[in-house]
């Protein structure tokens, strides 16, 4: 039953996401692509593109789109895909919200214990590795083309390097970078 599986999968993803939307991307990828095979790495990359270009929290956008794609990908009708999207979005925020409301009642500002502080220091370091793994797992032949001296692979590597440098050094926004890469794709692959 794909709906129950979606619910519990995204419940788990929500509970273990520390450090924002990008670490959630790592967890979602591991679950929906590697473990459940609800979609290909290529489809997942397309979802990420859309999630970053539309308004809203990246984690919610990715969960919504992944829930929809997982259901429709099984050959089920679109309205059930909408239900899958709602289940995934709800499940991903359910446990964190319950947890944070409980903790905000318990926690007075001064009761931060040394052990909890140490735990979050380790988690902040670990999350960086998690995101690196997500990026490494997306380096696929489907997304970059077959390695070698060909147009597809060459252009892909050029776009990858350019976007990395422009976003880190020049702080260019993700929408501009995604749109520009898409237009380059349309022009180059359209002419080739």
């Amino acid at each position: 039953m794909v709906f129950a599986e979606l619910f519990f999968t995204f419940l788990k993803i929500g509970l273990f996401t520390f450090g924002g939307g990008y670490s959630m991307v790592a967890l979602i990828e591991d679950e929906v692509v590697s473990r459940h095979s609800w979609m290909t790495a290529q489809e997942f990359t397309d979802i990420l593109a859309v999630s970053q270009m539309t308004p809203g929290p990246i984690g919610i956008n990715t969960a919504t789109y992944a829930g929809y794609t997982a259901v429709v990908g099984q050959g089920l009708p679109q309205w059930q895909g909408v239900i899958g999207a709602l289940i995934a979005s709800l499940a991903v925020v359910l446990l964190p919200v319950v947890l944070i409301l409980v903790v905000s009642h318990l926690l007075s500002r001064h009761s931060q214990s040394a052990a909890v502080v140490a735990m979050f220091r380790v988690l902040r370091l670990t999350v960086v590795g998690l995101i690196a793994a997500a990026a490494l797992q997306l380096l696929t032949v489907e997304s970059f083309g077959t390695p070698g001296l060909n147009l597809r692979f060459g252009l892909s590597v050029a776009i990858f390097v350019a976007v990395l440098v422009l976003s880190l050094r020049r702080k260019v926004g993700p929408i501009a970078l995604i749109l520009a890469s898409g237009v380059i794709g349309i022009i180059v692959y359209g002419l080739a």
């Binding site: 593109a49 990858f160 976007v163």
Partner: peptide, 30 residues
Amino acid sequence: VVDHFFMGVRPAVVALIAAPVFSMARTAHI
């Protein structure tokens, strides 16, 4: 056209996922 758009976009998205690794490495004092 849509297919070509996404062929161009995919490497960009992977780069956008990789970018916070470097910026977060700085803020997490790695």
